[in-house]
Amino acid sequence: MTVRAKKNLGQHFLTDKNIAHKIVSSLQNKDIKQVLEVGPGMGVLTQFLLEDKGLQTFVVEIDRESVAYLHEHYPELGDRVISGDFLKMNLMEYLHGPFSLIGNFPYNISSQIFFRVLEYRNQVPEVVGMLQKEVAERITAGPGSKTYGILSVLLQAWYDIEYLFTVHENVFSPPPKVKSAVIRLTRNKVESLGCDEKLLFTIVKQSFNQRRKMLRNSLKGLVPEIDKVDKSWLSRRPEQLSVQEFVALAREIEKVLHA
């Protein structure tokens, strides 16, 4: 039995076991005893995760054909094969305590997966993910870069992020039209940003949705009294602000909104 890749699920199955092993070996935090794999497909990463007997492996898969395959080929997973949509489920129903996250993430939902990581950031100390190279570069980009954006700022506020290696399209079935990359996120020591996090998210999103505009123009819909914000911020564009500067801006806007 094999599983046919479904275009609507963004499935591209990794076929190179050496790369699969390299991805799994990129998990470094040996203190974490649970791992959740997103979109295991036919288990090319799963087989290496299961080799570590001190690690409890869970997999979440939306494709019923893949779920049946995993039950047949990896019976030791038992009820740790979770059939459902990672983007919608309450993970705390299945995992208790901290867990690492790993996966060959479907291209069409990779950004949404990272937004979920942010929701569970206090339970997820480490993430190793393979995704579209372009998105990987966006997440790891720093200020001043054309690829620096919403995910860069929000993820880097909570995680140290490393671009590990590039993966060629010919090691997938079917081959995608773009290259892939593997990145690692390691939770930093920040417990609180000291600002209204929902407001920060809104500011970052609104700024980058109009990234060519100066902050004075992109944020005036959010802050009617924008001119009460320190003028030194207002003539800048979003890609010119570091993560820490976005946090400082959020604190200042919070004061203006509640004045």
Rank of each mutant, 00 (worst) to 15 (best):
V153A: 02
T202Q: 14
H71M: 12
F246E: 01
R4G: 07
V190R: 15
A181T: 05
Q123T: 15
G10C: 08
K33F: 04
N29L: 04
L154T: 01
S25I: 08
N104A: 13
R121I: 08
P175V: 02
K220W: 07
P40A: 09
D63I: 08
L101D: 09
P176W: 01
L164M: 10
A250L: 11
P238D: 04
I102F: 11
F105P: 01
S26Q: 06
Q34N: 12
E65D: 15
S145K: 12
V59W: 04
D52W: 00
G54L: 11
E126C: 11
D227N: 11
K231P: 05
R138K: 13
Y107S: 09
A259P: 03
V24N: 00
F208V: 03
V117T: 12
V243S: 00
L27D: 04
L9H: 11
I19S: 02
L151R: 00
G144L: 10
K220V: 11
Q240C: 05
H71S: 14
K7F: 11
T2E: 14
G41C: 05
R216T: 05
D63P: 05
K198M: 14
S173N: 10
S232C: 03
E126K: 12
Y69K: 00
F201W: 14
M42T: 10
K88E: 15
D31L: 03
T140P: 00
M89S: 10
S232G: 02
K30T: 13
Q123R: 13
R236F: 06
C195Q: 12
P106T: 14
L155H: 02
M130A: 02
L45F: 06
E197W: 11
A141S: 14
N217I: 04
D79Q: 15
V178L: 02
R64C: 00
G39M: 00
K7Y: 11
V204G: 05
S242D: 13
V190N: 15
F114C: 02
M42K: 08
V223S: 04
V171I: 13
E93H: 14
V190Y: 11
P40C: 07
T57Y: 01
T46V: 06
G84F: 13
Q206R: 14
T57N: 09
K33H: 09
L36C: 08
V171Q: 10
R236D: 11
I253N: 00
Q28G: 10
L45S: 01
L14H: 03
S235K: 14
H12C: 06
I19D: 07
G43N: 03
L55D: 12
S83Y: 15
L14T: 04
I102H: 06
I226Q: 01
V247H: 01
K177W: 06
S242P: 12
S235L: 15
K189Y: 09
E197F: 13
P75N: 09
Q156C: 01
V229L: 07
G129E: 08
T140S: 10
R236T: 09
V44Y: 02
F105S: 03
E61Y: 09
S100T: 13
S145M: 07
K30P: 00
D196V: 08
Q132S: 07
